[in-house]
Design a protein around this nucleic acid. Structure first.
Length: 426
RNA sequence: GGAGGUGUCGCCUAGUCCGGUCUAUGGCGCCCGCCUGCUAAGCGGGUUGAGGGUAAUCCCCUCUCGCGGGUUCAAAUCCCGCCACCUCCGCCA
């Protein structure tokens, strides 16, 4: 939710921000009108209510005819108060709904436009040249099968398309990656967390996943509960309705959780393999800090993401995501895209967003500052999304015989193994 | 899942039976001031949050006693629903 004050004081800035995302600006006028309506209904209600309280105070002291008269007047007034209150509640709801529809204002620096309009920030490492090495790389599906690491057929049999089993070295790899990621995060002062993956609507809505993105969310039938698509959801809601001690900021958490996504509207995309799946596990960084510090913190999250990719020996590039592709909550977003040899292109493996005070305002998370309380800033960043990192590792570090060299950083978590070797059919 | 209990402005707590004098009591903590050679003690004052009137630190008003409804002229207080926690029983990893 954007700052209602900003909308009232400088609506043109909000209009410009919508335009930058390629969206129409009529929500601005809707919200402004709702704000007018809201404030006049508040004034109406409060005037009636104050009168009612005044008269009510006189009743216990009054007697006889005077009392009967007061009772008659307050009885009428009570009905007026009731309808004024209902009008006020309705106006507040309309106003809030209108405000909730407006996405966060994109950063000045974020490129304008849609998905294709990202800005390339940097390229790290060079894609491996398999032609020069004299062999054709195998894709992760084939490697996963040869190594006994990924079982896509049985995943489909049991759960349907876009499901998989990680087995043997595949399962080991996920565990190792999880521990490596958690160790890295811990060393940078993060608190490790395992959050609930099932949440109430409040958490989902507060993080911005129940608007246009609702199609992608699994809901539990008859329960009013949702499966989270990322631990950003339970971690943002973690401090909801709290006033944080600003001396303790930033609060940094590294959360491991399963993630569930319907992937509605992506039919036909990435149908093979485990690039795009309905369920995966992920280690996510989540930070609460001040608005002023959030921009520097965003850069720090990006550096920690790069540190993780670097120690896995992956080639990747970093992009500054365009305004139109930011999603509802983000003010700015950086994606790291790893080179996938058999696709011969860079694919998103991590993503970090600065949501400024947008989610904090929705979830009522404030800090106590000298001037009073104010919403804090929330940021999130992927440390390790398992399937995509496993894909990148398998394809990048494969050898001609189908074995895969294990990056040194992972070896301590894989019983010292230096490579994964193909196995006979399972 | 069943039965019973509890939920008050940071923490503890009075008030709820029997509706109005609750503008919610007191203690602790915290903040400001006084006193004191310093410290402690003592004395005085302040200390939930949100919204509206306002551009506004002052001032006025409304809401806020877990949340949402209802009854009533009037609800912390009475009624209903929900949520959380505690105790016991059942079940379970």
């Amino acid at each position: 939710m954007i700052d209602p004050r900003l909308l009232r004081d400088d609506p043109d800035r909000v209009r410009a921000a919508l335009a930058k995302r390629g969206l129409p600006d009529d929500p601005v006028d809707v919200a402004l009108g709702a704000d007018e309506e809201r404030r006049s209904s508040i004034a109406d209600y409060e005037r009636l209510r104050a009168e009612q309280k005044q008269l009510g105070k006189q009743i216990p002291r009054a007697t006889g005819e005077e009392k009967a008269d007061l009772l008659a007047r307050t009885k009428v007034l009570a009905a007026d108060v009731k309808s004024a209150e209902a009008a006020q509640t309705a106006a507040e709801e309309d106003w809030r709904a209108a405000l909730m529809d407006i996405p966060n204002l994109a950063a000045e620096e974020a490129p304008a436009g849609g998905e294709e309009d990202f800005a390339l920030l940097e390229t790290v490492g060079a894609p491996r040249d398999f032609a020069a090495e004299g062999f054709e790389p195998r894709d992760h599906i084939e490697l996963g099968r040869m190594l006994g690491a990924i079982d896509i057929e049985r995943g489909a049999k049991v759960s349907g398309s876009r499901f998989y089993y990680l087995t043997g070295p595949g399962a080991d790899l996920e565990m190792a990656l999880t521990q490596l990621a958690m160790d890295q995060a811990r060393s940078h002062g993060f608190t490790t967390v395992i959050p609930p993956a099932l949440v109430r609507p409040r958490a989902m809505e507060g993080t911005g996943f129940l608007g246009q993105a609702a199609d992608d969310v699994y809901r539990i039938e008859g329960e009013d509960m949702y499966l989270v698509g990322t631990s950003e959801v339970p971690m943002a809601a973690y401090h909801s309705d709290e006033i944080l001690d600003t001396a303790r900021l930033p609060l940094r958490y590294a959360a491991f959780s399963p993630c569930f996504r319907k992937e509605a509207g992506s039919h036909g995309k990435d149908t093979r393999g485990i690039i795009r799946v309905h369920w995966f596990d992920k280690v996510e960084m989540f930070v609460y800090t001040t608005l002023e510090d959030s921009f520097a913190e965003h850069r720090r999250l990006l550096e920690w993401e790069k540190e993780f990719l670097d120690c896995l020996g992956l080639a990747y590039r970093v992009i500054d995501v365009a305004a139109g592709d930011l999603g509802l909550s983000a003010q700015r977003k950086f994606d790291c895209e790893a080179w996938i040899p058999t696709q011969e292109r860079y694919r998103e493996v991590t993503s970090t967003s600065n949501c400024t005070d947008f989610q904090a305002r929705r979830l009522d998370i404030r800090g106590r500052f000298e001037q009073g309380t104010a919403p804090v800033a929330t940021l999130n960043g992927t440390l390790c999304a398992m399937p995509r990192i496993i894909v990148a590792i398998l394809e990048t570090h494969q050898q001609a015989d189908g074995s895969v060299r294990i990056p040194e950083a992972l070896r301590p978590y894989l019983q010292g193994r230096e490579e994964l070797k193909p196995v006979a059919d399972g």
